[in-house]
Design a binder for these strands. Structure first.
Length: 93
DNA sequence: GAGCTGACATGTT
DNA sequence: CAACATGCCAGCT
């Protein structure tokens, strides 16, 4: 069957798409919701490598509530999250 | 010193 | 080469 279907990515997309406006979710949260809490690295990789326009990956932030990074440019992410008032702080690290 | 988290790097398919 | 999954390493608490 569709063994080629990375359920992990499917779950990640579903979770991230379910994030409400003004709300952010951490990599760990998404990874856990995806069923693999140890794959939070992969979450960033998926979003970084394959950005889906249906997925507000800019709402996926680090555990600190900071933006962390963004494949489109952190500035873009900062601006969006700031507009949503969902961003705690810009790249603090 | 130990534990947790990363938008990277490497490996495999 | 692209995409997914896991690991090493570095930084913070």
């Amino acid at each position: 069957m569709n063994s080629q279907l990375p359920a992990f990515t499917q779950a990640v997309f579903a979770v991230v798409k379910g994030i409400q406006k003004g709300q952010t979710m951490t990599y760990k949260e998404v990874a856990m919701a995806a069923g693999q809490p140890s794959a939070y690295r992969a979450v960033g990789n998926i979003l970084n490598t394959n950005y889906n326009p249906d997925i507000p990956c800019h709402r996926v932030v680090r555990s600190d509530g900071t933006a962390g990074g963004y494949n489109r440019g952190v500035d873009q992410k900062i601006a969006i999250l700031t507009s949503e008032k969902a961003l705690k702080f810009s790249s603090n690290r």
